[in-house]
Every structure is written in C-alpha cells, then in structure tokens.
Design a protein around this nucleic acid. Structure first.
Lengths: 207, 207
DNA sequence: TTGATTCTTGAACGCTCAGTCATAAATTGG
DNA sequence: CCAATTTATGACTGAGCGTTCAAGAATCAA
C-alpha cells in the first residue's frame, strides 16, 4: 500500500497502450472525493466522472483507496506549489502573508462550492484510523507549516514581524488558522467578510 | 425532519413502556459516530453500542440520520455548557481564556483517542450538502463564538485585553483557532506541547 | 506471423447496508 | 377481564456496494 499505484502508472513498454491519461483521470476523481467525501463516493461515481470503466480504474490504481491516495498526492503537490509561489513571489511583507491567508478565506467561501479542502476533509473523515492517509496528511501539514514559518522568518529579517517568535510555533499557528478557516468555510453563514477580519487578528499576533 | 425523534421520545402514557433511557442510548450512539464518522457507522454498530435492537432504535429515532441529529444535539448541549462554565467560573483574565483554549489542545491530543470533536467531524463529513446538520452546526458555532467574544469583552472592561477589538471578529477568530486545533489534533505528530504555543500566539493577538 | 503482454469491456459475485414488518409482550383505560 | 395501545424482537428484503474475472482488442518482441 506504500505506492500501490505508482508501479502500475508507469508506461508499459509491451502490451496494449493505456488509452487515458492517469493524471487527468485522477484530477476528475479528486473532484468527486472533494465534493462528496471518500465513503459516499462509489466506484460508479468515479467511472462517471472519469469516463472510464471499472476495470480500467482498478488496473491503474489498485482499488478505491489507491484512487484516493493518488488524488491526495496530486492535489497536495499542486497546492503546496501554489502556496510556495504565493509566499515567495514578492519580497517578504505583511501584505504578502496577508494575501496568502486571504486566499483561503476566498476559496473557502465560494458560493455554491463550499467543499473546503480535499486534504482537510479526508483527514477528518479517515483519521486517526487510516495510516496511509495519516502519513500523507502529516507530510502535507509539515510542509505547509514550514513554508509559512519561513515566510515569517524572512519578514523578521526585514523588520516586518516581531523578532521573538518561535519558528515552529508560528508555522503551526498559521497552519492552525488555515485549517480553522477551512472548517468555518463549510458553513454558509460565514462569508469572506466574516473570515477576512480573522486574518487581520492573526497578523496582529505576529507584529 | 425538523424534530423527527423528539415526538417519539416523549413518554407515552398508554402501551408498553420503553425499557431503555433514550439519553443513555444516544450517548452510546454518539460515541460511535464520534469514533468512526456517520457513513462508516452501521445500524449494527449502533445496536452493539447501545445494547438495543434495530426496531427499538428505529421506533425511537426514526432513522439513522435521526440518531445522528439526536447525538449532535445532546453532545452540543453538554459541551456548550462546559465552555460557558469554563469561561465564567473565574473573573475575566488572560489565564481564564488561556485555560479555556488549552482545554481543546488537551482533548484534541489524548493518546489513543484522537477523534476530535463530533460536531467538527460531522460538519466536514456532511456539509455543505446536508441541511439538517448545517442548521445545527451553524447554531452551535454561533453560540461558541458568542461565548468566546463575551469573555473577551468582559476582559476588556477589566483592562486585560486591547480595547480596539471588534466583538464579532474576535469570537470568530477564537472559534477558528479552536476548529483548527481540532483538525491538527487528529494528526499524531501534533502533541499538546506543539499546540499549546499556538494558544499563546492567539492571546498575543488580543493583548 | 505468432505468442506474450497489457489494456478494455461489462457482466457477475458475494456481501453489507438501511430500513421494514409480522408477531409477541407489556402496559393502561374501562 | 378485555380491548386498545405501545414497545420488543429478530427475521427478512431489495438495493447498492467494492471487487473480480473471462473474453476481446491492441500492441510489442522475435
């Protein structure tokens, strides 16, 4: 179960070639898991979303869990890259971090699609019992906290933030708020104008 | 579905008397939903946990969703009362709020039972699609935010907290952090000593 | 061309699920 | 005691689930 699908996903040199792009299929599957959750999603849902038949999905990803894990991996890679770019695109500033956090208040509250974050949703649905999901969520959260902490550290060097902040604590603090925003964003009574002030209070703790 | 079970739960004057206490049954059911999540939990799981047979559960609570809603209501009532008492037991102080928040870092990270919060778990599993759960989560979160905001307001009057804080924003901020703590608490790499510093950063934003 | 290999197709399997119902048991009102 | 009413019991149902698999199709190596 370590990498139950990656072996299968490598292009085979012999035999009939695969007729679909696994990355495209997984992106479609990820949307379904994201919308509905893991347990509610049926294989038929995934077939409909991907346009593939059961056998093709099973031969490529092993089983339903394999499809979820592939979805999480692909989703996390994309979103971590986006966060990293958002935090490093401009020179460290209060507004740079503010914009990075406001991204989560915006995506959390998009009307008609309050499905939050695939990783957060899956974590709450499947932890603490599922070791495969746990391993991935731990890694993703660690990377997010590192990126956030690094941004604050850079801001400290340029005098934007307080200098007596513990790196690890700040990263966890910001990650905690982001996850909280993703929870609140699921409730329709919380709009962006309710969540944005939270970000400003967060920044007040750092400067 | 408004109150699908409450009508049934009132004691009937005629006929064979109910042999079990619905509140006890619901507490046992709530533990199962809390541990496993709604969709993974089967009626047989609930029968095992409550010691009752299917017919008794169905006649008392209508259906599986009715059992969940009753569990949420009972759980929320207990926990809101606990939070209210925690916040008002001593005169308003930085340490009073700190203790109230540290409660969540402790319960979130109990070894061997990182099942978080029933309301948070159910919200992420069933929102935004389920209106019955949505209605309850909205109400519970609104009450939590109100209690937290009121505690800060009382602290402002005694000079413990900054005076330029918006009541609504502070309540949402603290609620957001609590929900974030409940998410992080699901990951075994986060212990209480990782979460406690978050609380101190939160307090730094208020004073 | 032949055989091995891989993917596609879609029917089929075994199982679990939420929910139902007929019957029996316990209570109340008259 | 006799209906009427409510609960307890547990077998049952129909639907949906994840997964498997045999047969057909497409490719490559030789």
């Amino acid at each position: 179960m370590m990498a139950p699908y990656s072996e299968k996903l490598s292009a085979a040199s012999r035999g009939r070639p695969r007729e679909f792009d696994p990355a495209v299929a997984i992106e479609a599957a990820a949307k379904v898991f994201w919308d509905q959750g893991y347990h509610v999603t049926s294989i038929e849902d995934l077939c409909d979303a991907t346009g593939l038949l059961r056998g093709s999905l099973y031969s490529a990803f092993g089983d339903k869990k394999g499809m979820l894990l592939a979805a999480i991996d692909q989703y996390a890679e994309k979103n971590l890259a986006r966060l990293a770019e958002s935090l490093t695109s401009s020179r460290p500033s209060r507004e740079g971090l503010r914009d990075a956090l406001l991204y989560y208040t915006r995506t959390a509250t998009v009307l008609g699609s309050r499905h939050g974050c695939l990783v957060t949703n899956t974590a709450l649905e499947m932890l603490p019992d599922d070791p495969d999901v746990a391993e991935r969520v731990e890694r993703i959260f660690r990377q997010m906290a590192s990126l956030l902490a690094a941004a604050v550290i850079r801001g400290q060097a340029t005098g934007v933030f307080k200098t007596d902040l513990d790196e690890r604590s700040v990263g966890n603090f910001l990650l905690c708020v982001i996850e909280g925003l993703r929870v609140l964003g699921k409730i329709k009574t919380y709009g962006e104008k309710d969540l944005a002030p939270i970000v400003d209070l967060v920044l007040a703790a750092l400067a």
